[in-house]
Nucleic acid binder design. Structure first.
Lengths: 150, 150
DNA sequence: CCTCCAAATAGGAACGTTCTTATTTACTAC
DNA sequence: GTAGTAAATAAGAACGTTCCTATTTGGAGG
């Protein structure tokens, strides 16, 4: 997803385009790897020194809610990372070592993983979590426009 | 898993049995639903009023590391819940509403979900995360005893 | 161009969780 | 039993993230 597409989507949902918001989006699309909030904050401060960390978080979460990026925690309660959605690849699978915390990102999708990938990584699997995000029936009606927000 | 089995496992891994630890385990196995850390803390303080929250967290994380319970966050960065492993059901699947935050625990396993469950819940799915926990090849060697710890 | 209002912001407080440090305690071997 | 040692503890500081409040600002409509 390009910077322009993201800005268009924000506008379409009825949110405003602020200089801080632009700078945050720019930091995200130009990052080499999914940054943590502080990376984005540091980057944005180069241009706007008074931007608050809260503003960064608010915008990262907004972008996640409208489906422009995915937010994920590699290990339980480590810092969150924020990755702009390229193509339409909503899946995000990780193979995480409980010993050292190292995470391997898996490019393949769910079902393939079970058959191929897991066998070949040499990991000893002790558990997994699979969570699905969406809108429940009663929220679905209110979701089309900005009402999807909390 | 019973209280006795858990204590045996702790001993087998070379960790010590303290009164606080016993009380924490007891609070976990007698809870009706997976508690958050504060629930456990409140419960344990009835017996040992000076137990610190840190001690509760340290023990909950230890129990997760040795595979006696699962720790999970329903929505991104909500509080963690801690569930004693009954049977050998390592799977933990949730259907989470991005609108209201309500979570439905799914009893069925991964593959079934795709075919049956998702269709019938009336949720509009916008994404999911699937994370696998285990030990990487280089950690596997050091895992048999307490070296599996950080 | 002005006005107006919802949305966005900065700053700091609050929350959940982990870390640090100094002290105490459970187990082991004598 | 006693001594020695690694592990566990309490207390509070620190960290990542969210919330609260008062102020400012983007953009729609006159």
């Amino acid at each position: 997803m390009t910077e322009t597409e993201i800005i268009e989507k924000i506008r379409a949902k009825g949110f405003k385009i602020t200089p801080q918001r632009r700078a945050i989006i720019n930091a995200l699309v130009t990052a080499d790897k999914p940054p943590v909030a502080k990376d984005v904050h540091r980057e944005v401060r180069n241009k706007y020194p008074s931007v608050s960390l809260d503003t960064v978080y608010r915008n990262l979460n907004l972008l996640a809610e409208i489906g422009c990026l995915v937010k994920y925690n590699l290990k339980n309660s480590e810092k969150s990372r924020f990755e702009i959605l390229k193509h339409h690849h909503h899946y995000h699978h990780h193979l995480i070592c409980l010993g050292c915390g190292e995470a391997v990102c898996l490019e393949k999708c769910l079902l393939d993983m079970h058959t191929d990938v897991l066998k070949n990584k040499g990991y000893k699997i002790v558990g997994h979590a699979f969570e699905i995000y969406g809108y429940c029936p009663s929220c679905c009606n209110a979701v089309e426009n900005k009402d999807g927000k909390k």
